[in-house]
């Protein structure tokens, strides 16, 4: 089985977990690297090999707060890679999470959904309430 890929998130790069054994496929946080090609290269390489012998079910989660336009290209390339699974007898599904008041992430999800040819679900969640100390 393919070794898992973990990338710890930073202030401008997302957290990535690609783990076949535990069936976790997720990209979360902010994706704002200026050079997104560099950041996403290991992710793309991992997926390229994964789609050759995928799990029978792959649920891929996007939980992004922000992403820049150069990341949106990379998100597309991940999705195009995942489309290859859909052409086999294996199942693939995308969950696109957005904070319920975040119109921008929701809208991006809708747009991307209309481009890719895989089951794609938009899921809203409530942000945990952060109490900011006010003086």
């Amino acid at each position: 089985m393919q070794k898992p890929l973990y990338i710890k998130g930073t202030k401008d790069c997302p957290q990535v977990t690609l783990d076949c054994e535990n069936q976790i496929f997720e990209i979360s946080g902010r994706s704002l690297p200026e050079d997104s090609a560099q950041f996403y290269a290991p992710v793309e390489a991992w997926l390229e090999s994964y789609v050759k012998s995928p799990n029978s079910i792959t649920e891929f989660n996007f939980r992004l707060d922000y992403f820049n336009s150069s990341s949106s290209r990379k998100i597309m390339s991940i999705l195009f890679e995942l489309e290859k699974i859909a052409k086999t007898k294996n199942a693939v599904k995308i969950n696109w999470y957005y904070e319920e008041s975040d119109e921008m992430i929701k809208e991006s999800g809708e747009e991307i959904r209309s481009i890719v040819k895989i089951p794609f679900e938009l899921k809203s969640y409530k942000a945990p309430v952060v109490v900011k100390p006010k003086k």
């Binding site: 336009s69 150069s70 949106s72 290209r73 597309m76 390339s77 747009e111 991307i112 481009i115």
Partner: peptide, 15 residues
């Protein structure tokens, strides 16, 4: 966005 490969220039004007 739906073009599969990156344009020659990075971002290809998407920004």
């Amino acid at each position: 966005l739906s073009q599969e490969q990156d344009g020659i220039q990075r971002g290809a004007g998407l920004g």
